[in-house]
């Protein structure tokens, strides 16, 4: 019979580190997907998977079992990803003095593909990642957890360590920014 997450956790706490393999094998793909959507980079995502499982193992004594192990693991993965994208964003900010609003305006004024070309040539795909990159780290995390992972606002709040109202606001701000960036491109009627 397949071992449950709770049983595996109990075994690890009893000193059987090998029992962690069950949890790694069960959750590594979903953690990878989350990490990829947070970072947009496969190598970073793979590193984050390692980092997440290592942190989770070290903090297992703090896991109280109130949330499912997967949810708890996602919180750690989200925090690991936040660390990474914040550090990356700061580096980018140091490299360029151009502010985000300015970039948006410049992009709008430049010869970006027209809606028609985008909708029918698959170039829309190329706009999605840059649009996500314009979100703040917290907005991106909140959006990824809501949109791709299907977490409710309350769970997102717990994952980010903020009140539900703040989590809701982050999701809302993220959607607002994405809408501003992508609406012209998708307004041709092709979702």
């Amino acid at each position: 019979m397949e071992q449950s997450d709770a049983e595996a956790v109990a075994q690890i706490r009893a000193g059987n580190a090998d029992a962690y393999r069950v949890l790694v094998e069960r959750h590594s793909r979903s953690v990878f997907r989350l990490a990829f959507r947070m970072t947009g980079n496969q190598q970073d995502a793979e590193d984050l998977v390692q980092e997440t499982f290592l942190r989770a193992f070290r903090q297992l004594r703090k896991y109280d079992g109130r949330a499912g192990f997967g949810t708890w693991l996602y919180r750690i993965a989200a925090n690991c990803s936040l660390d990474l994208i914040r550090a990356r964003k700061r580096r980018q900010e140091q490299q360029t003095a151009v502010d985000e609003e300015g970039q948006e305006m410049a992009a709008a004024a430049s010869g970006d593909p027209t809606p028609d070309r985008i909708a029918f040539s698959g170039e829309l795909q190329q706009l999605l990642e840059p649009a996500l990159n314009r979100l703040s780290p917290t907005e991106r995390t909140a959006f990824v957890l809501r949109h791709y992972e299907g977490m409710c606002i309350e769970e997102i709040g717990k994952a980010l360590g903020v009140q539900a109202g703040a989590a809701k606001h982050s999701v809302f701000r993220a959607v607002q920014k994405l809408r501003r960036a992508l609406e012209p491109a998708v307004s041709t009627g092709r979702p």
């Binding site: 995502a45 999605l128 809408r179 992508l182 491109a185 307004s187 979702p191």
Partner: peptide
Amino acid sequence: SLERVLRAMDRLEA
């Protein structure tokens, strides 16, 4: 209009 934008985001596959 909102729905179109969010459905477009579904194309961003891992």
